[in-house]
Every structure is written in C-alpha cells, then in structure tokens.
Design a binder for these strands. Structure first.
Lengths: 239, 239
DNA sequence: TAGTGGTCTAGACCACCAC
DNA sequence: TGGTGGTCTAGACCACTAG
C-alpha cells in the first residue's frame, strides 16, 4: 500500500486501496475478497482497521458480507441492489419492476450541453440508446441514454442489451455505478414521446435527467427519461 | 437500560436507549451528551460499544460530534443541517435558500386521504398552513402543510412562524424530523396556484407530496408543494 | 493541564457456513 | 472441524479544545 504524503487515517488508506483495486478490475463483480485477517496481513494493519474500511464499503453498497462465508463485490443483478436506482413506484407505494424495449441504438457526436453533462471534451462520440420501459405490460417510461464510446467501446453495435444496463456495464466493461444524481423537471409531453407512451401530447409528465457515477468518480452515463405520473410517481426517502 | 427479551446486540440496545431519551426530551436539540466513558459507565457497557452506537446516530444526522469538545444533539438551525431536506436547486446546480411568506393558517378536519397519509384516525383536526416560498425575491414554491393538532397543539394560533418549520417543531414541540419521504408528480397548474407563483395556468409543474418522520418514527407532517421547473429543479443524489 | 473525541491494536468469544 | 464475519472489551496513543 502506497502511503500518501498528507496524513490520512489508516482505515481511509485501506478504503482507498480497495476502491483502487475494484476500479482497476483486480476484483470483479461477484468475486470474494480475502478474509479480514488476510487483508490485514497483506496491508500491514490490524484486522480492526480493515474491518472499518470494509464496513464503510458495505454501507455504500459496494461490498456485501455474509457471516460464515466471506466478503463479496456487490453485483447489480442480485435482488438487493438491482433496481436500487429505479425510483418509480405505483401510487399506492408498491415497488414495480419494468421490462425494457430498445427503440433505437445509434452513435453520434455529443452536443455541447451533453458533453458538459458527461464531462467530456466537446464533439466526442457517444452511443444514443432510446428505450421504452413498460410496467405490467403498459409503456410507462421513455428514455434516452447517452454512453461515451471512449468508456463503452462497441456498445453501439450490440444486438442484445439486457434489461439492466448497470449489470451489463459491470459484466462487459467493468464499470460499477455506485451513485446516481437526478434532476427532476416537469414538462408538457410532445407528440413523439406521447406516442411512445400511448398518451396524448399536451399532458404533464416528469422528466428526469440522470448522471451515473462510476466507482472511480467518473460520470459514465447521462440520460433523460419521461414518465407520466398518472399511474406512477418518483419516490425517494431522505435521511 | 432495559434488556429486551429477543436478542439485540449491545450497541443496538444502546442506540435504542439514546433514541428513546431523545424522543422523550431527556436530551434536547443543542444539548451535549455525557462523554463516551460516562455513558459507558452508566449503561454498563464498554466505551467502544457506546462509540459504535453514537457513530451510527452521527451518520443519521441525529447527533454531531466535535473532537475535543463533546457530542451534541443536532439542531435544524445550523448551517449543516438546515435546508438539508430542501431539494430545489437552480438549473446550474447552485443551492438556493428560500424566504417564506405564510398565506393562510387555519384548522380543519383532515380528509380521508390526508388522515391516511398522516396515519391518523379520520376526521382528526389538523392545522393547514399555506405558504409561498420565494427565491431571490421571486415566488417559486406554493405549498400546503398539514400538522395534526394532537402533535402540535396551538400551532394554528401562532402569529410568527419562522422560515424553518423543522427548527420550530424542534424548539417548540420537541419534534425532530430525521427523515422525509417524497413522491413527485407532474401536474398542470391551475389558476389559483399559478397566480401565487406569478405564472400562467396550464403550465407544467412539479408537485411534491412529502411525509416528514419524527425520530420516534411517527409521521408528524404531510405537505403538498408546487414548483415550476422553469428556473428550479428537484435535485437528489442516491448511493 | 485535563477532558473530549479519533485512531489503532490485540484478543476473546459467538454465530454461521461448508465440508 | 476450521474458517469466516459479528460482537464486545481493554488499553494505548493522538488531536483538538478550553481554562
């Protein structure tokens, strides 16, 4: 473990080292980590210090621990974390799970605004994926997802995109989305989006702009999603 | 400390005991708690166990610790936690702080839906506070806040309501809001709300329904707020 | 200087899991 | 039975604060 020049607590250095290894793909989604004592020996600290770093990563949903078994890298395709970032619920408060149909998948240059949102140099190439997400068989969300081709090479030429994009990023590209930042707007539906959602133009709808953050802190995806709140609402709890 | 019949880790029992004391007003907002060793002696556990419980409460913004000074009950009127639950930001991402004007303050029976949201028996009396919140001098948010009179006796007869309701709940009623649950809807503005916001009826706006949760788990407030997203957006980060 | 929280270590014991 | 994480304790030392 490389010691930094400015003082950092040991457990923070251990945390940073583990994040670095996860970022570099040294451990991949689903892998098990060495035991607390194993890591402690390797890094030259005590087991309690490793434990503190590991617990912090568990709090952030980056690792999972199972008593008697070991410590594992979280996957975006288990029941706990899948759809953790999907915030739409029925009016009654029931969670729902969407199916997804890809409408189009192309590549193009990012606009100035898009590049800024993705923190890219202007004019870089991005994949543009347009999807309609259905709930209980009825179209509910129309979304456009932008992925920089520098981060996801070849993603614009893929035939089968699974329902869970984040799981796909993780398994194919080693990208682990650990945070999303949403901005919610109210808009009037235009003709095109309304048609996809089987609604009438002129109705009010939520429009969510989302930046998805990789474990290394990079913005790896930016999306816009339209959803009528006649049947579903965006639901979130703050503590 | 009363031991529960079913097994709970010691630190969890310590946590529960501290929450109980905070709920009962044994410690109030701004108070300092005994030192870790003091609490440990009193509760018959080790200092490390108390520390684990305290750190959990700090993570939840319920306590604050200052090295060299002590552990304090969080207040809703310091720069860190005030407006923690206010999620509207400018399009550029800049945080904004609203001023508030009370439009009306009355009391009435809760409707069936409102009672359900507040988890009250139907027909109980609530205060209804209507406010317009302005940002940089221009009206931005129109909201209706419902407060059960059983929880906030006399709040419908108060002359001066401060800008921060949560701080007021804390100082006057010993109610500490530690969590809010928001549901976001898209609506078309009607004449009345549009007039208050100096907008035109027929425009799209965000409508946020919020339940506010006290430290003891009760829903103590329910509100509806309307905001045009022409200038401001609802912004949230999920991890 | 005394008291507080912050870090780090070491070790004991328990609960869970796989073989 | 051995290995894992989970809990709990005890003690050393550091950093910050106040008088």
């Amino acid at each position: 473990m490389t010691l930094s020049t400015k003082y950092q607590p040991l457990y923070q250095q251990v945390y940073d080292e583990i994040v670095k290894r996860l970022s570099e793909g040294y451990w991949k989604a689903g892998d098990s980590l060495p035991s607390e004592f194993g890591l402690a020996d390797e890094l030259g600290v005590s087991q309690g210090t490793v434990r503190k770093a590991l617990n912090q990563l568990v709090d952030e949903n980056i690792l999972r621990r199972r008593q008697g078994k070991g410590t594992y890298v979280s996957e975006h395709n288990n029941e706990n974390s899948l759809y953790r970032f999907f915030r739409y619920k029925e009016h009654g408060g029931e969670s729902v799970i969407p199916e997804t149909e890809v409408v189009s998948l192309t590549s193009r240059q990012a606009s100035a605004r898009e590049a800024k949102k993705l923190r890219l140099t202007e004019n870089l190439m991005v994949a543009e994926m347009v999807r309609v997400r259905s709930i209980k068989g009825r179209p509910a969300i129309y979304e456009m997802v932008l992925q920089p081709l520098s981060i996801f090479p070849g993603i614009d030429e893929v035939d089968e995109i699974p329902n869970s994009l984040y799981g796909y990023y993780q398994s194919k590209y080693g990208i682990s989305v650990v945070e999303v930042r949403d901005e919610l707007h109210a808009v009037i539906l235009d003709e095109k989006v309304a048609n996809h959602l089987e609604l009438n133009a002129g109705e009010a709808a939520l429009m969510t702009e989302r930046s998805s953050i990789n474990i290394d802190g990079r913005v790896v995806e930016w999306s816009q999603a339209y959803c009528s709140t006649e049947k579903f609402v965006y639901s979130v709890s703050l503590k």
